[in-house]
Design a protein around this nucleic acid. Sequence first.
DNA 1: AGAGAGTATGACAACGTTGTCCGCTCGCCG
DNA 2: CGGCGAGCGGACAACGTTGTCATACTCTCT
Lengths: 337, 337
Amino acid sequence: MIEQRDGRAGRRPTMVDVARLAGVSLKTVSRVVNGEPHVQPAMAGRVLAAVAELGFQRNHMASALRAGRASATIGLLIEELANPFYATIAAVTAELARERDTLLLSASSEEDPAREEQLLRDLCSRRVDGLLVVPAGCDHSFLGAQVEMGIAVVFLDRPGTNIDADAVLLDNRGGARSGVRRLVEQGHRRIGVLLDSVEVHTMRERLAGARDALADAGIGHDGSLVRDGVRDPATAAAAVAGMLAEPHPPTAFLTLNNRITVGAVQQLWRQGSDAALVGFDDFELSHLMPRPLTVIAYDTRELARRAARLLFARIDGDRSPPQTVILPTELLDRGLR
Amino acid sequence: MIEQRDGRAGRRPTMVDVARLAGVSLKTVSRVVNGEPHVQPAMAGRVLAAVAELGFQRNHMASALRAGRASATIGLLIEELANPFYATIAAVTAELARERDTLLLSASSEEDPAREEQLLRDLCSRRVDGLLVVPAGCDHSFLGAQVEMGIAVVFLDRPGTNIDADAVLLDNRGGARSGVRRLVEQGHRRIGVLLDSVEVHTMRERLAGARDALADAGIGHDGSLVRDGVRDPATAAAAVAGMLAEPHPPTAFLTLNNRITVGAVQQLWRQGSDAALVGFDDFELSHLMPRPLTVIAYDTRELARRAARLLFARIDGDRSPPQTVILPTELLDRGLR
DNA sequence: AGAGAGTATGACAACGTTGTCCGCTCGCCG
DNA sequence: CGGCGAGCGGACAACGTTGTCATACTCTCT
């Protein structure tokens, strides 16, 4: 008469159910399911038949809980899963994880520090084996305790703050420097720089690299050619148009991420400007842009691979001091104009 | 003398530890941690202080196990996380999940049915509340039992096979049909069709739609203008070049996904061909291609949103019969040539 | 004043699994 | 033929948490 759980078929079978059906003890089922030795083939057969008949599937949570074992899950906290850069990171991480029979819990911070912290805590409460974090917040000290308690943490793309942990980064400063150096070599003196936000670590580094190159060349830089807060292609286009309309317009632009690059290219092309352009970040169809593009490129997959490998090494017990890995960038010159 | 766990600090604190430190019972800690009523403020304060001091964090696995409760996790099985289409789906899903304090476990099948099944089983063994699946395999009957046992399943982009479950799909056939109709209206009679693989459900539908439109117009189609197995832009370019070099070349092309479109555009532009082109799938920089492009577009976010909403409704107990939702496509005419 | 209702707290079992340990059944050797 | 180790199966506790129930106490109403 009594139907279980809102009228649906039924309770999930447990090892107890399997044991009862097979007429063996609970522990024997456990042994068979986990492929432990010392079970007679005939008995194992009975157990497997019962498993199949009931559609039994081991409860991973109970198993991990009892065994005090790792959850075979890692957490990935990024800014925005839909962004190709982060999507690539997620894909590489998921693949390396799968090779270890580990699954990936991914979450997006949307650049909100509070949200980041909440998601990280949530991931920790699920007892992930490790965390791969592209930090948005400005204080990761609360992760320190988690590290103490056995959750490995590796930062990716940007270093963590107030915490001594591994980080795998790009040579943002060096990349921007080499890009501007190239422009200077080509004779440019007035170089407009467009960036997302100085709040972001990578942007600060890239801007510093640009300034390095100008200083190297003895070119003064009063900041009037820098535009901050350029968050999307449309804003980038407007910024380019605005700068070109000024009395002493730049003869070249450095765009500090690919969204900005796309907007800038479009605007330059639209107005038929022959200003030079170097963009940070390569992107999928960059070679099909209306004008050839020079970009500061890097290997996103390698970035993720290094970070994931480091994380797994930590999970496997590597206790060497935290390290910071910096990956090189490459100037891909597809013709400046 | 005995150090715990490879010399590291220590065991994670549990509610028992908190209770001991606060001098209260285990259950009281549980009540405070879960915000249950009937705890005196003073006592709650002692508990919270102990929680803070020890850095206690509830073990979500143990909690879900005991309460027989949902794991507050959903699984997403797609083909390839790095692909922008799937990345968008993952992002939308993760966001809707977060609004319910649910996390997202994502995995890529890489189009391998065996791998798909293994990952799905792995996800089920983690007792996810629901699964969002872009199926690659050809038999999902094994998921039936999981559905019986309370895991909601919604298929996305392609229907599941041998299982009666919800699906949210695109109008692939209608979209391709309208694309070819447009070409026919413009006077084209010989239309080359390039596709990835007829193995894939969406490709078959799109091809069928193209044939529909040709049949509507009374144009015979012997298959000689169809190229199967075009998996990447380079192959697409080669296929276009090959077809254009034949005695009776096509005057227009229909490319059935965006990778193919990119390769075809590039090749047409390279040889200065004025063949018309309609591509399935819009993509990020399509408006910046060297020639304007007409694409059969759709709302990927809406696709994911509908699927996720349906999944959450099922998780929340919706037991109405499985439904198939088909979302419209739109022909974006940016000038055929 | 005493019954009854309600609040605050705790003891204990249970969720589904695995580690530990104990005992049974063989076959083999002295 | 008795003893003994190896091989095999099972009883039981434990992982960290929450649901159930019991208890002690406080307050209100008749």
